[in-house]
Amino acid sequence: MCPDLPSPLLGLHHVALIVSDLAAARRFYLDALGGQEIAAHYRAERDSWKVDVRLPDGAQLELFTFPKAPPRPSRPEALGLRHLALRVRDLDAMLARLQAYGIVCEPVRVDEFTGARFTFCADPDGLPVECYELP
């Protein structure tokens, strides 16, 4: 076991996602979810875009495009990232917002350990995105 040293860890900075359609990803992560684009850079040497998105709590998403990126299975459960979970203040308001953008969500469930309500939808590439209501 490691010595009992204070951890310099501060929290989550960003999650990087490779997307197949940047316009669809912007519509989902910026418009539907309410993120804020803070930078967009085209990298000619990689024929790739990198778009930085700020979430309301300061954490960020990085949206990347890469030509011919292979699909990543998410179901059945595959190794690696299982889903992206986002904290929401009001799950019903988030559901109404997502429905206004034509995004279908699963029925609301209750976390058996915390009692918090949550639901899942999918981003344009099928990545499961969880909306988790803070109790």
Results as ranks from 00 to 15, higher is better:
3 P>M: 11
5 L>V: 12
7 S>Y: 03
8 P>G: 10
10 L>V: 13
14 H>I: 07
18 I>E: 09
26 R>A: 12
33 L>W: 02
33 L>Q: 03
33 L>S: 03
35 G>Y: 06
39 A>T: 02
45 E>F: 01
47 D>M: 03
48 S>I: 04
48 S>Y: 03
49 W>K: 08
49 W>N: 14
51 V>H: 04
52 D>L: 14
54 R>K: 14
58 G>W: 04
60 Q>I: 00
62 E>A: 08
62 E>D: 10
65 T>I: 03
65 T>N: 05
66 F>R: 14
66 F>H: 11
67 P>S: 07
68 K>T: 04
68 K>Y: 11
70 P>K: 15
71 P>E: 14
71 P>Q: 14
72 R>P: 02
73 P>C: 05
74 S>D: 08
76 P>D: 05
82 R>T: 09
82 R>N: 13
85 A>M: 09
86 L>G: 11
87 R>T: 12
92 D>W: 01
94 M>C: 05
98 L>F: 01
98 L>Y: 02
98 L>H: 01
101 Y>A: 08
102 G>H: 05
103 I>K: 02
114 T>H: 12
114 T>G: 10
115 G>H: 14
116 A>I: 02
117 R>G: 12
120 F>Q: 09
122 A>H: 15
123 D>A: 09
123 D>L: 08
127 L>W: 04
132 Y>Q: 05
133 E>N: 02
134 L>W: 04
